[in-house]
Computed example of a mutant assay.
Amino acid sequence: MSLKKDFLCCCSSMFPSTETARFYLLGVLIALYMLAGAAIFSSLERPAELHAHRLWEERLMDFSHEHNVSCEDLKSLLHHYEEARTAGIRTEQSRALWDIPGAFYFVGTVVSTIGFGVTAPSTMTGKVLLVFYGLLGCSATILFFNLFLERVITLLSLLILWCHSKRTRHGRLECRGSESDRNEEWKPSVYQVTLVLFVAVVVVAFGAASLYSTMEGWTYLESLYFCFVAFSTVGFGDFVSGQREHHEDTQVYQVANCLLMLLGVCCTYSLFNAISLIIKQGLNWMLRALAKIQPCAYTAGANSVQFGPQHSLALLCS
């Protein structure tokens, strides 16, 4: 018995804990996921990039010959224009970027971590201030998202529990006592909460896309694409809402745009956290499968500390 116990202790010390193994496994899977994504998007987008470069060079040469301007001077002018875009200069007339509504829109993209990139400080004082402003603002907004998620999870859990209790009560009235006990122990599945959050995100995104398609002149698919990029806080900047000149006169649209951004980011953030919990369950399944091959490979992380919205989701869902 002593020899077996020593062997198990020695074996368990050679392998990481479950929490550590899950961390390493997730890192490897993310790296593989990124490599696969890079290969796919490179095969899709690289030919279009090369074609755009060739077309641009042809247009530069044609313009240079037609107007008797050297390519070097033309490229120098374009370089100055690229610098001017940071200050808000556009070839097409657009709304003011740094009036109070424009600046409010900018700080909203900063604290929400969207960062479209269409607006950026051009002064050194503004750039330095942005570092400290973003540090506090992003931290406070992430806290707001976490608190929002906790309340959404609690509300969804209560609604799902109410529906479950009502369905159970109508189904088995004769077993009232035992069903009551079961309802007290029952918790909504994380898959049910994820499904409800997914439906909420889809409803918000489709409703917002209808508004953006009308106000921005985008196609509906472009509007849906913008909603995902914005609500997920990716913020590429290829599509940015509320930047046209006539939008200065549509204050209702500006307010609706900000509210949709806030609601969309909150719902999508909640959905991401729920999906991440499902991914965590998948990692646990993979580790259990590995443990069957090597029974003493992983030790249970009983003393690990959990915190944050995912822990609240795990407590509320079965």
Rank of each mutant, 00 (worst) to 15 (best):
Q254A: 09
V252N: 04
V240R: 01
M286H: 01
P295A: 01
C296V: 03
S232M: 12
L283V: 12
A300G: 04
G242C: 05
Q306W: 11
I293W: 05
N303P: 00
A314G: 05
G282Y: 01
T250S: 07
G242H: 05
M261I: 06
T268L: 06
V240E: 05
C258M: 13
H246F: 13
Q251T: 08
C258I: 12
C227D: 05
Y253N: 02
A302S: 12
C267L: 15
L315C: 10
F231R: 02
N284S: 10
N257D: 03
S270T: 08
I275V: 15
I278G: 05
I293D: 02
S232V: 08
A289T: 07
Y298R: 08
V305N: 10
L259M: 15
N273Y: 08
L287H: 03
R288D: 14
Y298P: 09
G282M: 04
N284K: 07
N257V: 00
F307V: 11
Y253R: 01
V240Q: 04
E248N: 07
Q294G: 00
L290I: 06
W285I: 07
A297I: 11
N284L: 09
L277D: 00
L263F: 12
D249T: 04
V234W: 03
F307D: 09
L313Q: 02
Y298F: 15
C227V: 09
L315N: 09
Q251V: 10
F236Q: 09
I279L: 15
T299M: 10
C258K: 02
R288M: 07
L316K: 07
Q254H: 06
L316Q: 08
T233W: 01
C227Y: 02
P309T: 13
F231V: 01
S276P: 00
L316G: 00
L313M: 14
V234N: 12
C266Q: 14
M286N: 00
N284F: 07
V265Y: 05
L290F: 08
F272V: 13
C227T: 12
F239Y: 15
N303T: 13
C267M: 14
R244T: 04
A302D: 13
A230I: 01
N303F: 14
A230N: 15
N284R: 07
I278S: 05
G237W: 04
A291D: 06
G308Q: 09
S232P: 02
F236W: 13
F231I: 02
Q254M: 11
F272I: 12
I279A: 14
Y298S: 10
T299N: 08
N257C: 09
L262W: 14
H246T: 10
E248F: 03
P295C: 01
A314I: 02
I279F: 15
W285R: 11
C267P: 00
G301R: 11
I278A: 03
V240S: 08
F239N: 08
A274M: 01
Q243L: 13
V265W: 05
D249H: 07
Y253K: 00
L287R: 01
A274S: 12
Q310T: 04
V305A: 10
L271W: 05
S232G: 14
D249C: 04
L271R: 03
V229H: 05
A274N: 01
